[in-house]
Design a protein around this nucleic acid. Structure first.
Length: 432
RNA sequence: GCCCUGGUGGUGUAGGGGCUAUCAUGCGGGCCUGUCGAGCCCGCGACUCGGGUUCAAUUCCCGGCCAGGGCGCCA
């Protein structure tokens, strides 16, 4: 029995050899005396050519019955031919129909007729049959792989923290409530508290790549209610240490993606540039100046408005950090500066006008943490199990969270985050 | 949640108070031995939902739902 080959593996030098291919009928061009079938599989498209003279009547009849997107198995001979796309084609000796496809299709996998994003998401499995769509997810897969390889090499240990959580009292973002037997529970908005607790465990450096859930009613091309967060936390490190890890990771992953996803990047027409290290570090105060001098009003102490982000993005071309954020617009666990408690050791990593990551050196002193929780209008009692980790030897630590989808958008210059998720969850979409 | 724009065959579109509702692709049938956005001929298939105005609404008005863009929210 012959092994199955992918279309990409069929090259002119295999001329004369027998092969088996499995895939979908991408297009059929029936010219009467000769039938061309474009067979599509994960790796590409190969032409199956059946001239009536060289094809049995039985097989020719069978080929004529094929329709678009049928799943077929083709057994045949590789033939080198300058007339064929890529210089090679398959002369079939046998074709098996493995699955039929209803007509008409909900959208056109050849892409000749454009479909809107909404239509595409409704039939995502068909949408993924277009190479320029599957390329996004092949690259996202590699990106996550290279992130893991990098972090493991840096000595990080992968952990898994619960996504079913008890507390809704962390403040800030809205949580999705769920029924947990006779109690109410919530979907986790961030592994933040758990990964910090791990700093008291002696594991030193941990990371998690997992979904986070936010019940915000945001409705923008940059937000979803379920995304993948790449989180790290490292003991005995400060903000600058983890910023260095972050920028190193970004550069390494870009290099790896460039090297290992050449075909996909070409399909997407994306020329990736490797950023230079170190990334520029802007003080929050500098950012306020830049934004204001560009004509967009921004008060000292305020978070960036969308207009401010855009103004910044105009000035700053690639990846850059914003550091020394005002303490009171950042979460309770960020460490205020000792000499100026109104400023903090929090930072954001931006790509042009898009926030891709945020992190900080954390508060590791129990009493200060309690005070910070109170100052934010939250109740320390609801943080009892979290706080107890700070009582028995909590080392200084720092960490960050990097949005996997936002990073994918930056990598591939994608404008709508929905393009980077197989089955996105937004304000209205819950299916498929 | 707010503002703007829109919703017409399976898909993407044109149009518009009364006419056989445009075009492409698709789908069905026919012709064709080198297609590669194949070509040619015949046919099929649609006005988002609810209410209102009107002799008449797919078209105008109001509302819902949905989409795209912008913003807000996003410890």
């Amino acid at each position: 029995m012959l092994d199955r080959r992918y279309s990409k593996e069929i090259i002119p030098s295999l001329d004369g050899s027998q092969t088996i291919l499995m895939g979908w009928v991408h297009e059929i061009r029936d010219l009467g005396g000769i039938i061309f079938i474009l067979l599509r599989d994960r790796e590409g498209i190969i032409q199956v050519t059946a001239p009536s003279k060289k094809t049995s009547k039985e097989l020719f009849k069978k080929l004529r019955k094929l329709k678009k997107e049928y799943v077929i198995e083709v057994q045949g001979t590789v033939k080198k031919s300058p007339k064929a796309p890529r210089g090679v084609e398959i002369i079939p000796s046998n074709v098996k129909v493995l699955a039929e496809s209803q007509q008409p299709l909900p959208l056109d996998p050849t892409g000749k007729v454009k479909a809107e994003l909404d239509t595409r998401l409704d039939s995502r499995f068909l949408d993924l049959r277009r190479p320029e769509i599957s390329a996004i997810f092949k690259i996202k897969s590699k990106m996550l792989h290279f992130v893991r390889v990098f972090l493991e090499k840096e000595g990080f240990i992968e952990i898994n923290t619960p996504k079913l959580v008890a507390s809704a009292t962390e403040g800030g973002t809205e949580l999705f409530p769920i029924t947990y037997f006779e109690r109410e529970a919530f979907l986790g908005q961030s592994p933040q508290l758990y990964k910090q607790m791990m700093m008291a465990s002696g594991l030193d450096k941990v990371y998690e790549i997992a979904p986070i859930f936010r019940a915000e009613e945001h409705d923008t091309p940059r937000h979803l209610n379920e995304v993948i967060s790449i989180d790290i936390e490292a003991a005995f490190m400060n903000h600058e240490d983890v910023m260095k890890i972050l920028e190193k990771l970004i550069v390494k992953v870009i290099k790896d993606v460039k090297r290992h996803c050449k075909d996909e990047l070409e399909i997407l027409g994306r020329e990736l540039e490797t950023p230079k290290l170190p990334f520029e570090r802007l003080e929050y105060e500098e950012v306020v100046e830049i934004v204001n001098s560009s004509g967009v009003h921004l008060k000292h102490g305020e978070d960036l408005s969308r207009a401010a982000e855009k103004a910044l993005g105009e000035t700053m071309p690639g990846y850059y950090f914003i550091k020394s954020w005002p303490t009171n617009i950042k979460p309770f666990y960020v460490m205020p500066k000792e000499d100026d408690p109104n400023k903090s050791y929090a930072f954001d990593l931006m790509y042009r006008d898009l926030e891709v990551s945020s992190g900080a050196m954390r508060v590791h002193e129990h009493d200060l943490l309690v005070e910070r929780i109170k100052r934010q209008g939250l109740n320390p009692i609801s943080f009892k199990s979290y706080l107890s980790a700070f009582k028995y030897g909590m080392p200084p630590h720092a960490g960050w969270g990097l949005g996997a989808e936002r990073f994918t958008m930056a990598l591939l210059d994608i404008k709508n985050i929905r393009e980077t998720v197989l089955f996105p969850r937004d304000r209205r979409r819950l299916t498929p």
